[in-house]
C-alpha cells in the first residue's frame, strides 16, 4: 500500500469514526423515543436504535479493515536481533535494559 494512498484511506477511517460518534450523540432523534412502535413488540426506539447501531458498528469495522488495516509483511515481524541499531537519545542515556532495541 502506497503511503499517500494510505493517508487518504486513513482519512476515510477517521470520517467513519466521526460519523459513528455523531450517530451516538444523536440528540435530535430523541423526540422519536415515545412515538415509534416497538421493534418485535418489545424494543422501544431508545433500545432498538442501539441494536441497529451494533450492526452498523460491525459494518463500519469491516470497512475500516478493508480500507486501512493491511496484513503486515512477514519480514517486518521477524524479531529484531541484538544487532538492531538502538537509538539512545531522549531519555536518560542508560544502556538497554528492556527488550532488544529499547533504551529506557
Amino acid at each position: 500500500m502506497k503511503k499517500s494512498g494510505f493517508k487518504f484511506r486513513f482519512g476515510l477511517v477517521l470520517l467513519i469514526a466521526a460519523a459513528m460518534f455523531a450517530l451516538h450523540n444523536s440528540f435530535w432523534l430523541w423526540p422519536l423515543d415515545g412515538r415509534l412502535p416497538f421493534l418485535f413488540g418489545f424494543m422501544p426506539f431508545a433500545f432498538s436504535y442501539y441494536v441497529f447501531y451494533a450492526l452498523l458498528a460491525v459494518a463500519a469495522m469491516a470497512l475500516v479493515i478493508k480500507l486501512a488495516w493491511p496484513d503486515p509483511p512477514e519480514r517486518l515481524l521477524e524479531p529484531a536481533g541484538e544487532a538492531e541499531p538502538a537509538p539512545s537519545t531522549g531519555g536518560s542515556g542508560r544502556p538497554p535494559t528492556g527488550p532488544p532495541g529499547l533504551t529506557l
Binding site: M20, A60, M61
Partner: peptide
C-alpha cells in the same frame, strides 16, 4: 443502554 455501552459498541473495537 445507549448511555453506558452505546459508544463502546463502536469505539472499543475501533
Amino acid at each position: 443502554y445507549g448511555y453506558v455501552i452505546g459508544w463502546s459498541i463502536f469505539i472499543t473495537p475501533f
